[in-house]
Simulated assay, not measured.
Amino acid sequence: MNSVLRLLSVLAGSALLTFTVSWLVHLLLRRMDARHPETPLWNLLRRCRLALRIVLFAALLRGAYRQVDWRPLEEREAGVGHVLSLVLIGAGAWLVVHIASAAVESSYARYAAGTRDPARLRRVRTQVTLIMRVVTAVVAVVAIAAMLLTFPSFRTLGTSVLASAGIIGIVAGIAAQSTLGNLFAGFQIAFGDMVRIGDTVVVDGEWGVVEEVTLTFLAVRTWDERRLTMPVSYFTARPFENWSRGGIQMTGTVFIHCAHSAPVELMRKKLYEVLRGCPTWDGRAWDLAVTDTTPSTITVRAIVTAKDADDLWTTRCAVREALVAWLAEEHPYGLPRITTAPAAVPSDADRVGSGAGGADVPADAGYRR
């Protein structure tokens, strides 16, 4: 009975001490957050409360469970200690990832608050995302290795594993050549500033926005909400269009086919009127000119600008609809027409033959409506 009471007292004391320490840490972080509202670090660290509690509780039990004089526990002392060690290692790795994530997110938030350049923000955001993935992967690998080393069988195999590490590394490098290529390409994209989260790109004829960048793949969200998942090595080995390089503002064209009699000068004035009423036009530039002609039509090109690709698409559609509707309503003669008028019927004198043995030509020969 005394052994059971001692076990319960150890569990209750460990739990009470764990909640007391976590509550004090939470209170301290809340005060620091109120004192320094310019940084979100302290508020982000409060998300680590669960991981901290597990670490504290596992550490306290790991140090005190041997003091319990309870026979079932003594018979399984090694197994209980091993389980507590595994829990402590896993929770410690979880806590480290949370702390690193809070520090990185806080640094990015402070940088974003003081920077107004969208291109730099997207670049830093891409780098921060990849850094966090690398940190998470490294911590996970170290934690798994530490867990495996707690098993005696793995410790005895350590010497042979180290001896064959060179051969295994060569074989793994050959087998995972594509994966390693994507891994290094991910670093090249992140720190070479080739493509960033939020960039507007055209890949394989598809237009979209970069939504996610990892160490192995890159996700592009197309205009119709589809997701293109592509290996990052694609962007280091093939050419692609990045419409956000050097600034996200863009210039676009609208082509309209008109008749030769179209009022070009009035179309130019109408274009400016339409753009002034278009909220997606950024006001940087506009123009209208005849760029080509055919025997039946002319090609009128309107140039418009917008702050990004989405606004440019909206502006082009608005200009095209407004100009075509205006021509149809105000100047229908300016729209292309297909001539379907019948040919003139020849007179009686024209039907007389040439007198050189030629037969008379019928009045309707060669004339079909």
Rank of each mutant, 00 (worst) to 15 (best):
N182S: 11
N182C: 10
F184V: 14
A185D: 10
G186Q: 04
Q188C: 10
Q188G: 11
Q188D: 15
V195Q: 02
V195W: 06
R196Q: 15
I197P: 08
G198L: 12
T200H: 00
V201C: 01
V201E: 03
V202E: 07
G205D: 00
E206Y: 12
G208V: 00
V209A: 09
E211Q: 12
E212P: 04
V213D: 07
T214W: 04
T214H: 07
T214Y: 06
T216Y: 15
L218M: 09
L218I: 07
V220T: 06
V220C: 00
R221K: 09
R221W: 01
R221H: 02
E225R: 14
E225S: 08
R226S: 06
R226V: 00
L228P: 06
L228M: 13
L228Q: 06
T229L: 13
P231K: 07
P231R: 05
S233C: 07
S233G: 05
F235N: 06
T236I: 12
T236P: 03
A237Y: 05
A237W: 03
R238A: 08
P239S: 10
W243F: 09
W243K: 06
S244L: 01
S244W: 10
R245D: 07
R245N: 01
I248L: 13
I248W: 13
I248G: 07
I248R: 12
M250Y: 05
T251M: 15
T251G: 13
T251C: 09
G252N: 08
G252I: 09
G252R: 01
T253K: 15
T253S: 09
F255E: 14
F255I: 15
H257M: 11
H257D: 13
C258V: 15
A259Q: 04
A259N: 03
H260F: 02
S261C: 05
S261H: 07
S261V: 14
A262N: 06
A262D: 09
A262P: 07
P263A: 10
V264Y: 03
E265T: 14
L266D: 09
R268T: 14
K269W: 10
K269G: 15
R276G: 13
G277Q: 08
G277Y: 11
T280S: 09
W281F: 12
G283A: 09
A285G: 11
W286P: 01
W286E: 13
A289C: 10
V290I: 11
T291I: 11
T291P: 04
T293V: 11
T294C: 08
T294E: 12
P295F: 04
S296I: 14
S296G: 03
T297D: 10
V300Y: 02
V300D: 07
R301S: 12
A302K: 01
A302D: 05
V304S: 08
A306S: 13
K307N: 08
A309R: 13
D310N: 08
W313P: 00
T314Y: 13
T315M: 12
T315K: 11
